[in-house]
């Protein structure tokens, strides 16, 4: 159960081997989290993550299979994940995501569908499968990892951005739909985070480390905010950018 500070005792992570999700779990296991269920695909990485979380303080770490490129498998992953957590879970982190090179995918219909399946359709289906279970358990929290890339369309990542914009949109509405039921849903919008997903890419201004991102996310989880920018000053930056005329925005975005 979550305590007065909202600290969860059990966590299910969809996309359980992402750098950011694991750094968040390290911190949660140092607080009250003892049961972690990781849904993921890469068995070697899942095994390493299990070791890491047991060392961080978890007493039970279970892994369940997840194939995000096949949205029809989402309900099965949710069922298996909840069962592995003992039937109910305090916090679900939705972290499955891939980042693609816009120039490589923009002429490739199959690659675009694949991107949308993993980043949007699978998570949306998983959230739908989760919804009645959250209502039935009567309490809980959902953290959806969106991205600042979904806030404004940019030449160099508009397809990825579109998947995140969709997920962000769903997250906010999903949160409203569960608010009166005592379920807390939060959308996190990280900016550029130095991680395995971004190695090799040019860094944007205000790039932060995984550990800084994780600190900000853990602080956000304890807050009552429904949208959390990581780092928080991005909220102001995008507050301004949103109002730039498109030609000027194109210029600023291309010069980063």
């Amino acid at each position: 159960m979550r305590n007065a500070f909202g600290q969860p005792q059990s966590v299910l992570v969809l996309g359980g081997t992402s750098d950011i999700a694991l750094a968040v779990l390290d911190r949660l296991c140092g607080e009250r989290t003892r049961t972690v269920v990781l849904a993921g695909r890469d068995e070697t990485r899942l095994a390493a993550a299990t070791e890491r979380l047991l060392a961080a303080g978890a007493t039970t770490v279970e892994c369940v299979p997840m194939e995000a490129s096949d949205p029809s498998s989402a309900p099965a992953t949710i069922e298996a994940g909840l069962a592995a957590a003992g039937g109910r879970v305090d916090l679900v982190i939705v972290a499955a995501s891939i980042l693609t090179d816009q120039l490589e995918v923009e002429n490739d219909p199959a690659a675009i569908s694949h991107l949308f399946d993993i980043n949007l359709t699978w998570p949306a289906a998983a959230l739908a499968a989760l919804r009645p279970r959250l209502l039935a358990q009567g309490s809980g929290q959902v953290a959806i990892i969106s991205s600042v890339g979904g806030v404004l369309p940019r030449r160099d990542n508009y397809s990825y951005g579109a998947t995140k914009a969709g997920l962000d949109f769903i997250g906010i509405g999903y949160g409203d739909s569960l608010r009166d039921a005592g379920i807390k849903v939060q959308v996190f919008r990280p900016g550029f985070v130095r991680s395995k997903m971004t190695t090799g890419l040019d860094e944007a201004p205000m790039t932060i480390d995984v550990s800084e991102a994780a600190d900000a996310i853990v602080a956000g989880l304890a807050s009552n905010a429904s949208v959390i920018w990581v780092p928080s000053k991005l909220r102001l930056v995008f507050g301004v950018m949103r109002h730039l005329p498109r030609p000027l925005f194109r210029f600023v975005a291309s010069r980063r």
Partner: peptide, 14 residues
Amino acid sequence: ELLAGWGNTAPSMA
């Protein structure tokens, strides 16, 4: 109904 204790923390539905 969503119920909490006197401290109004961690409400839950029952």
